[in-house]
Design a protein around this nucleic acid. Sequence first.
DNA 1: CAATTGTCATAGCTAAAGTTTATTATTTTC
DNA 2: GAAAATAATAAACTTTAGCTATGACAATTG
Lengths: 311, 311
Amino acid sequence: MTIVQLEYLLAVDTHKSFARAAESCFVTQPTLSMQIKKVEKELNVLIFDRSKKPVLTTDIGRQIIDQARIALQETSRIKELIQHQKNEIKGELRIGIIPTLSPYLLPLFITKFMQQYPDVNLVIEEALSHTIIHKLNNDLIDVGILVTPLNNRSIIEIPLFYEIFKVYFSTSHPLNKKETIDISELNINDMWLLKEGHCFRSQAVNICGENGSVNTNQLKFESGSLETLRRIVEKQHGYTFMPELATLDFNKEQKKYLREFSNPQPVREVSLIIHRGYMKRKLIDLLKQEIVSNIPKELLNKNRGQLVNID
Amino acid sequence: MTIVQLEYLLAVDTHKSFARAAESCFVTQPTLSMQIKKVEKELNVLIFDRSKKPVLTTDIGRQIIDQARIALQETSRIKELIQHQKNEIKGELRIGIIPTLSPYLLPLFITKFMQQYPDVNLVIEEALSHTIIHKLNNDLIDVGILVTPLNNRSIIEIPLFYEIFKVYFSTSHPLNKKETIDISELNINDMWLLKEGHCFRSQAVNICGENGSVNTNQLKFESGSLETLRRIVEKQHGYTFMPELATLDFNKEQKKYLREFSNPQPVREVSLIIHRGYMKRKLIDLLKQEIVSNIPKELLNKNRGQLVNID
DNA sequence: CAATTGTCATAGCTAAAGTTTATTATTTTC
DNA sequence: GAAAATAATAAACTTTAGCTATGACAATTG
């Protein structure tokens, strides 16, 4: 006996016709007929008298349907329960998020979150990691979204996902011809980097390691936005790193610039962070859940690549 | 959301362990884990906190499980309802049944019927068709089980199933060598028959038609029981008809004597009969249902062979 | 009274869901 | 710190819900 089967019973009862009942359940008539016959067989009773037109319930069928209605009512109360408790979640949630995540991660979950918890007011601010940590310690924000591990005793890290580093080459660059890129082929001096202070920058530097420690660049420009770097690479020469989430909605043209590292690919760990001793833990759990269930699920695999150090 | 999933939730809650819960539900642990994860995804909430050992319910999980318990309670009341009403069916049911059905058909449903309706007292008597009809007309029995059609205006026939005629040959008989038998190959004079008055006898005669109208038999013996005929065929010479139900639990040895007719096979229609204007129709319906659901289902197919006349 | 229409049942097929075994990642325990 | 216990994951397998097409039957209509 299944919930769906009980729903079919009610439908036939209300519509006095198998065909119309099926329609109202958005299935075909044979499907509904079979399922009803299955309940009847399982319970070993006739629920409908098909010889009467329009179909009538048998004596016991009447009782069964009435009880089924009650059972379904109680079942649906489970969902109401959840909706109700979601509406009870209210208050303000102040989030700090780093610029290399903000434009790509927020759109993935923010609308859904606000629908789920209409009485929660979000205050989101974009800031660099050290600012976020500072504000967290002074209770100026409730939670941070940034790259870990931080090795900070006063902060609790709640890992969310693992994001792969990719490389974005100008078409003129020789490495653009290759399918996958090896880390040893990169030279930090050919790269366009974010300004000092971005963890994405330090990680880029760490990935390249010692390759090309002598700066021979004619032009030195360090941007505050990945989008700027991407456009520079497209129009000019050189390359830059791209975090995976930034590449999700790349069009065909943009994918021509994009290359992956050979295995193991470098990844960064993205976490929620809260201050040790922070109280409103429940809302944070819901935030985590909402983020995790709205990003591509391959990002959840902790072992998809090699974690890159931050400093 | 399914009933089974809700049961899994309750199981984990009571056993505080996925593995033990699975065992109690007679499924494997991954099965249960996945189903629970599915509910959680559908409802978009975490029900269990797996980080705690032993597993604990979350806040909302607690509420969900309590509500699920109520819902399942109401669902199971459907079955109780049926059991209850079956116990309310009481009274006496007097059944007349012909000897060529009685020993084979009754064992198939009688025990189950008595379990299902413990307060119904059955009075069963074996009698020939004409006796059954007579007793029905004089309200000495409530229902008859015999072979139809009867063409009797005072009687309502409720068809139950369609039983194939088979042939039982002594091993010495030349037709025993053949895979299937053609009706034209039979001679009524070689056959062992039941006594006059059995509808099975008239049907046997009708099947054979005109074949061998001159009786040349040295011995003339007509029995009141198919079992007697069967033993005679086994030990002596000749052949006799066997109704399908009589052959169901034949052993390997006995099947060597058994042959089927070539298509279309002759069949007899077995029905419940009641007197027109009979009142206790409900109990009859239940009897029909019980018989129909306890015989091999191929017997329900009306078009499995050629109906044989009775007189 | 034959033809049409409306109704539910049946059969064969496909796609999805449920289950299993085998394996892995983690945590607990001694 | 090794062994045991626990739950998650993966891949193969089985079952089932649902679909289309068709059939049987009854009521209605021309």
